[in-house]
């Protein structure tokens, strides 16, 4: 048993727990080796100079917050509001007894879920070229809201549909038995309960939109209209440094991480009940 030559037999005799311990030890060893290699090989002063340049970072203030973050928030919320309204409408169409409404909603959802958001933004930016009389309220703000609204509506439509279907059938029946017409019952009784159910996925959708708002840069924005990604990119060219991009990345995270956390908390609370 203790003979070195009988190694395969000895290995076979390791208990699952011992085997797991050895495997864990190997994984830690690889990790430590990788960190040591990185620390030795990387040119730390150069990296600090490039990415953590405090002077360059300070150049972005206060516009980072007063312009870029503000615009990102505006694009996100207007897009979300439009997507919410359109998504709810599509969900109701999807559940309509009128078949063509169901088809239209289904096609919309398939098309807009299947297209990259970037393609939708490129289409919107091309609209004024194709139709010189094309006009949207709010200029770039209107176009951004439209783009983000069209993209998010397809996801929100599916979310709302699931939420409406999760409301027990007895709710609609009770409302109808009180004489409420179908739409009235939907608006007063079913949809308020459905929205409560879908708050966690909608919060996740808000996180996605917050990130997708960076696509607004393809609409050709002026200095006053820049959002975080373009702001970082422009500053980065100006100062020939990647630091501003890192700074705007961190600014995204300041918003998205707590929002994502909130979504998971809401989800846990909803499912816990």
């Amino acid at each position: 048993m203790t003979v070195p030559g009988a190694e395969p037999a000895a290995r076979a005799r390791l208990s699952p727990r011992e085997r797991q311990r050895i495997s864990r030890g190997v994984q830690y060893a690889i990790l430590v080796a990788a960190i040591v290699a990185l620390a030795l090989l990387a040119d730390w002063p150069a990296i600090r100079q490039a990415f953590l340049n405090a002077e360059v970072a300070a150049e972005g203030l206060p516009e980072l917050f007063t312009v870029a973050l503000k615009n990102t928030v505006i694009y996100t919320f207007t897009g979300f509001a439009l997507g919410f309204a359109l998504g709810l409408l599509l969900a109701l169409m999807r559940l309509s007894p009128v078949a063509p409404y169901r088809w239209i909603a289904a096609v919309y959802v398939e098309v807009f879920r299947g297209l990259p958001a970037l393609v939708i933004f490129l289409m919107i930016s091309a609209l004024p070229l194709a139709f010189p009389s094309f006009w949207l309220p709010g200029g770039v703000y209107g176009m951004a809201a439209l783009g983000l609204g069209l993209v998010s509506a397809s996801y929100m439509a599916e979310t709302f549909r699931a939420g409406i279907q999760a409301v027990p059938k007895g709710q609609m029946e009770a409302a109808r038995s009180l004489g409420m017409p179908y739409m009235r019952a939907m608006i007063s009784i079913v949809i308020p309960q459905a929205i409560r159910i879908v708050i966690p996925p909608l919060t996740n959708e808000l996180v996605l939109l917050f990130k997708d708002s960076s696509l607004v840069l393809f609409l050709g924005v002026t200095a006053g209209q820049v959002e975080l990604a373009k702001f970082g990119n422009d500053q980065s060219s100006t100062f020939a440094s990647p630091t501003p991009i890192l700074v705007s990345g961190i600014t995204y995270l300041i918003i998205t991480i707590p929002l994502g956390y909130l979504a998971r908390r809401l989800e846990a609370r909803r499912d816990g009940r």
Binding site: P168, G170, A174, L178, G179, M180, P181, P192, Q193
Partner: peptide
């Protein structure tokens, strides 16, 4: 809808509006 207003219904599972 008008006709149903004259008929009240009470369900086995109550079906109160929970919100």
């Amino acid at each position: 809808d008008a006709a149903r207003r004259r008929v009240g219904m009470v369900f086995q599972q109550f079906n109160l509006f929970p919100h």
